[in-house]
Design a binder for these strands. Structure first.
Length: 390
DNA sequence: ACCTGGTCCCGGGCTCGGTTTT
DNA sequence: AAAACCGAGCCCGGGACCAGGT
C-alpha cells in the first residue's frame, strides 16, 4: 500500500464509507509491493538467483508450495523490483561507479492469462520490448522470432511463469520447452503447488515455500486490514479466529475477511459483527479454488458464473435447470448448449463441484447439483464493481 | 431396453493485424 | 492511399458417443 493511497483515505474521500475502505488492500487477488512475513523464503530465492548478480545466467528454478503461501506475492514483487534494475536501459551508467555486471531482464508472467504458446510469447515480449505487441493477426512463430531477436540483441531474460500445471494451464515441461525453443538465453522460473518429485520437469534448483505459521498470518492479515478496512472494523480476536480457520492459507483468510466486510457493508454495519464474519467464512468453500483462476476466465465465463452464484437454490438443483435459467437471462447471449458445455467444463476444471443427487424419482441417470468451489461473496462483489465502474 | 446426465471433439465463424491489390 | 483480402488464434455451437441409473 503506498503513501498516496493512505493520504487519499485521510482526505475523507471515503470518510462516509464504513467497513470496506479499499477492496484491493484486502482482496486475495492483489499483492503488496512488500510482502509481509516471507523474508527467509525471499532470501533463499535470492541465493539461487545470485549468479545473475555476477553477470551469469541463473539456473532454471522451480518455486513450489501450497496454495496461499505467498509464492506469487514474493516472486511478483521481487521480479517487479529487479526489472527496474535490469535491462538494456542501463546503458547510461555513472562513470564514477564501479562497473556493474549487466543484470538479465526479469519478467513475471501469469500462466492463467498466458496459457498458450502464443500468449506466453506475447506477454513475455510485451514486458521485454517497448513496442506494442499485437494480440491478434500474427502467427505464433512470428512472435517467437520477435522474442528471439529481442533477447539476442538485449540481455538474457529470466521469465517467472506463475501457476503452472493447474487444470487450465500448461505443465512445467511444456512451458520450459516453449521458452527454450526461443533461445537458450531465456531462463525459466516456474511456480506451482506440486512438490518437485511430482512434476515431470527437472529444474536446476528448487525453492520451497511453507504454509504461513499462525502468528505470521495474523501479522499479514493485520497489516492488510489496517489499510483495507475502516478503523477497528475487525478486532484482533476476530483476526486470530480467521487465521486459525484458514490454517496457514492467506488466500482463504483474505477471502473470508473481504467477504465478511462486504456482508457488513451491505447490512450497513459500521464494524464486522460476528455474523458477518460467519457469512464471510461461509462464502469460502472448504477446499477452495483460487479466486484468481476465476477472474482469469474469459468475460463470458465470468458472466456465466456470476449468474450461477446468483441463482436461487432451486434453480441450480441440476445442471439442466441451471442451464435453462442461465441461458434465458438477458445478460447471457450464449446458446443453451454452450452454457451446458461450459458448466461441465468448469466442473471439470474443479471450479465447480458436481454433487450427485440420490433421489430415486424418474428414470435415467440422476442429475447433479452445481456447488461453487471459489469465494462466492468476493467474486460477486468484484464482478459488480468491474461491470459497474463509477 | 430405455432414458437422462456427462464427456469429448471438431468445424465454422469472429476479430483483428498484416499483406497484397487497386 | 485506400480497399480488399488473407490468415492467425480463439470462442461458440452442436453432435456423436459414453456412463449410470430404472
Amino acid at each position: 500500500m503506498n503513501v498516496d493511497d493512505r493520504i487519499e483515505r485521510r482526505l475523507g474521500y471515503d470518510a462516509g464509507a464504513g467497513v470496506l475502505v479499499d477492496v484491493d488492500a484486502v482482496s486475495p487477488v492483489s499483492h503488496l509491493e512488500s510482502p509481509v512475513g516471507r523474508g527467509p523464503a525471499l532470501e533463499r530465492l535470492l541465493d539461487v538467483l545470485s549468479p545473475a548478480f555476477e553477470g551469469l545466467l541463473p539456473p532454471g528454478i522451480y518455486v513450489h508450495g501450497p496454495k496461499g503461501c505467498g509464492k506469487t506475492a514474493v516472486v511478483s514483487a521481487l521480479f517487479d523490483r529487479l526489472a527496474t534494475h535490469s535491462g538494456p536501459k542501463r546503458a547510461i551508467q555513472t562513470s564514477t561507479r564501479a562497473v556493474q555486471p549487466t543484470l538479465p531482464g526479469f519478467v513475471y508472467v501469469d500462466a492463467r492469462r498466458a496459457s498458450t504458446r502464443f500468449r506466453l510469447y506475447h506477454d513475455t515480449l510485451d514486458a521485454v520490448s517497448d513496442d506494442e505487441v499485437p494480440d491478434h493477426g500474427v502467427g505464433t512463430d512470428d512472435l517467437a522470432d520477435s522474442l528471439r531477436e529481442a533477447v539476442n540483441t538485449g540481455t538474457d531474460v529470466v521469465v517467472a511463469v506463475d501457476h503452472t500445471n493447474e487444470p487450465e494451464t500448461p505443465a512445467e515441461t511444456t512451458v520450459v520447452e516453449w521458452l527454450h525453443d526461443v533461445s537458450g538465453h531465456v531462463v525459466p522460473v516456474c511456480l506451482g503447488r506440486d512438490p518437485p518429485t511430482e512434476i515431470e520437469w527437472t529444474p536446476d534448483a528448487t525453492v520451497a515455500f511453507d504454509r504461513y505459521r499462525r502468528h505470521v498470518l495474523v501479522e499479514l492479515l493485520t497489516s492488510r486490514c489496517s489499510t483495507g478496512l475502516g478503523r477497528n472494523a475487525l478486532t484482533h480476536d476476530q483476526i486470530r479466529e480467521v487465521a486459525e480457520w484458514a490454517a496457514g492459507d492467506a488466500h482463504d483468510a483474505l477471502a473470508a475477511i473481504t467477504g465478511a466486510a462486504v456482508h457488513a457493508e451491505r447490512a450497513g454495519a459500521s464494524t464486522i459483527r460476528g455474523l458477518d464474519l460467519d457469512e464471510g467464512i461461509d462464502g469460502v468453500p472448504k477446499p477452495c479454488a483460487a479466486l484468481g483462476r476465476v477472474l482469469a476466465l474469459s468475460e463470458s465465463r465470468r458472466r456465466l458464473l456470476y449468474e450461477l452464484v446468483s441463482l436461487a437454490e432451486a434453480d441450480r438443483s441440476s445442471v439442466s435447470t441451471a442451464t435453462e435459467t442461465i441461458s434465458s437471462r438477458r445478460t447471457v447471449d450464449l446458446s443453451e448448449s454452450t452454457v451446458r458445455r461450459v458448466l461441465y467444463e468448469l466442473a471439470d476444471a474443479e471450479l465447480l463441484d458436481r454433487v450427485t443427487a440420490q433421489r430415486s424419482e424418474g428414470k435415467g441417470r440422476p442429475p447433479s447439483r452445481l456447488v461453487p468451489r471459489f469465494p462466492t461473496l468476493v467474486f460477486r462483489e468484484l464482478f459488480d464493481r468491474a461491470t459497474r465502474p463509477f
